[in-house]
Amino acid sequence: YETDHQDYCEVCQQGGEIILCDTCPRAYHMVCLDPDMEKAPEGKWSCPHCEKE
């Protein structure tokens, strides 16, 4: 199925295993987040940009 999420990391602009924000189209590698994540979040997750809003 098609999503509106970007298929690359917002921080480093590379693809790969990325996690998707449930609020906006941004996507991130877990290691590119500050602080980085050990494992993928369970349930709904909002990226740092959305958390600030």
Rank of each mutant, 00 (worst) to 15 (best):
4 D>M: 15
51 E>M: 10
34 D>N: 09
22 D>Y: 03
43 G>W: 07
11 V>Y: 11
9 C>V: 00
19 I>V: 07
3 T>K: 15
31 V>Y: 13
13 Q>D: 14
47 C>G: 00
12 C>P: 01
22 D>V: 10
51 E>V: 06
25 P>C: 12
19 I>S: 07
5 H>G: 14
22 D>T: 13
26 R>Y: 03
34 D>W: 11
7 D>R: 11
53 E>H: 03
7 D>C: 00
25 P>T: 06
52 K>V: 07
53 E>S: 11
3 T>D: 11
44 K>Q: 15
27 A>E: 01
35 P>M: 10
6 Q>W: 03
51 E>Q: 03
16 G>R: 11
21 C>S: 00
3 T>G: 14
44 K>A: 11
1 Y>R: 12
3 T>L: 14
3 T>E: 13
42 E>R: 11
39 K>T: 06
11 V>G: 14
8 Y>I: 09
13 Q>Y: 08
52 K>N: 11
34 D>Q: 05
29 H>N: 02
10 E>M: 02
47 C>V: 00
8 Y>P: 12
50 C>K: 04
51 E>F: 03
51 E>P: 11
10 E>T: 09
44 K>Y: 04
38 E>N: 06
8 Y>W: 08
7 D>Q: 14
46 S>H: 13
29 H>I: 00
2 E>P: 15
17 E>D: 08
34 D>L: 11
26 R>I: 11
15 G>L: 10
2 E>A: 07
38 E>G: 10
23 T>D: 10
27 A>C: 11
10 E>S: 12
33 L>V: 10
4 D>H: 15
3 T>F: 12
34 D>K: 04
38 E>Y: 09
15 G>T: 11
44 K>L: 07
53 E>G: 05
34 D>I: 02
9 C>K: 02
2 E>H: 15
19 I>P: 00
43 G>V: 03
42 E>V: 13
45 W>V: 14
37 M>W: 13
24 C>P: 02
45 W>S: 13
9 C>S: 01
6 Q>A: 05
8 Y>V: 08
27 A>K: 05
43 G>R: 09
41 P>T: 08
26 R>G: 08
32 C>M: 01
11 V>M: 15
25 P>L: 10
45 W>H: 08
16 G>Q: 12
43 G>D: 07
20 L>C: 10
9 C>A: 00
4 D>T: 07
4 D>R: 10
45 W>E: 13
23 T>I: 05
23 T>E: 04
9 C>N: 04
34 D>M: 06
